[in-house]
């Protein structure tokens, strides 16, 4: 039973309550840094680190943090993790850091992270909070990657910098530019909602059939 509970918290974030496709949170990094798959993954991993780290701390200290100052405390914790991620990336992968630029410090303003602290980590035991954070962060990473992959494939004819279609490929320049982010996200959301609509329709049909039989 306990195991199922953790699993449930994890899967919820990846698919059913996906922070990007369903909750439409964290749009700023989503649109800004997904012009290549590698940038998207770097951003996703940085967010993963920050979200899981701060969820552990917030959840462990949830009895000590007075509710009047809880948001300030969450922000201090998150900001610390963001700074750590910022310097680590700068030291380890300066190229990626240059591409992500101002968007690493801006992770602190990602409403997904503060939202999880307020809605989940500050109310549940640490073990569940970790699974929730991992699920949400994995869902965010998945969304970033799917956007980054589509944009890099169309915009550059490559994935992770490896050319897929040979030299003659005509790049879709718009996909690398900001409008491409909006377009791709819109199309992915369209498919997500269409899929959900079809599923609900199917379930309703099944229920109808069961009732009549």
């Amino acid at each position: 039973m306990k195991k199922n509970e953790s699993y449930e918290e994890f899967v919820k974030g990846v698919w059913r309550d996906n922070p990007v496709f369903v909750q439409v949170l964290g749009m700023c990094p989503m649109l800004a840094v997904t012009n290549s798959a590698i940038n998207a993954i770097a951003m996703g991993l940085a967010t993963f680190f920050v979200l899981v780290g701060s969820s552990i701390l917030v959840s462990s200290f949830r009895h000590w943090i007075p509710k009047q100052v809880r948001i300030s405390c969450f922000i201090i914790i998150i900001a610390t993790f963001v700074t750590i991620a910022d310097y680590t990336l700068l030291a380890l992968v300066p190229k990626v850091h240059k591409e992500l630029g101002a968007f690493i410090p801006l992770i602190v303003a990602n409403c997904l992270i503060l939202g999880r602290q307020e809605a989940f980590a500050s109310r549940y035991p640490t073990r569940l909070a970790v699974f929730d954070a991992m699920g949400m962060a994995a869902g965010f990473l998945l969304a970033l990657f799917s956007l980054g992959a589509v944009r890099e494939i169309l915009g550059d004819g490559a994935l992770f910098g490896v050319k897929l279609f040979g030299e003659n490929f005509e790049p879709w320049v718009i996909m690398i530019l900001p409008p491409g982010g909006f377009l791709t996200l819109g199309v992915i959301l369209l498919f997500f909602n269409w899929f959900k609509y079809k599923k609900d329709e199917f379930l309703a049909e099944v229920a109808e059939a069961e009732r009549s039989s």
Binding site: W64, S72, C73, I76, I77, T80, T83, I84, Y87, T88
Partner: peptide
């Protein structure tokens, strides 16, 4: 509470820097 949180955070940031 805030002061302690800030202090710990400051130390962590100096460390990583």
């Amino acid at each position: 509470t805030l002061a302690i949180a800030g202090l710990i955070s400051g130390i962590a940031i100096i460390g990583i820097y």
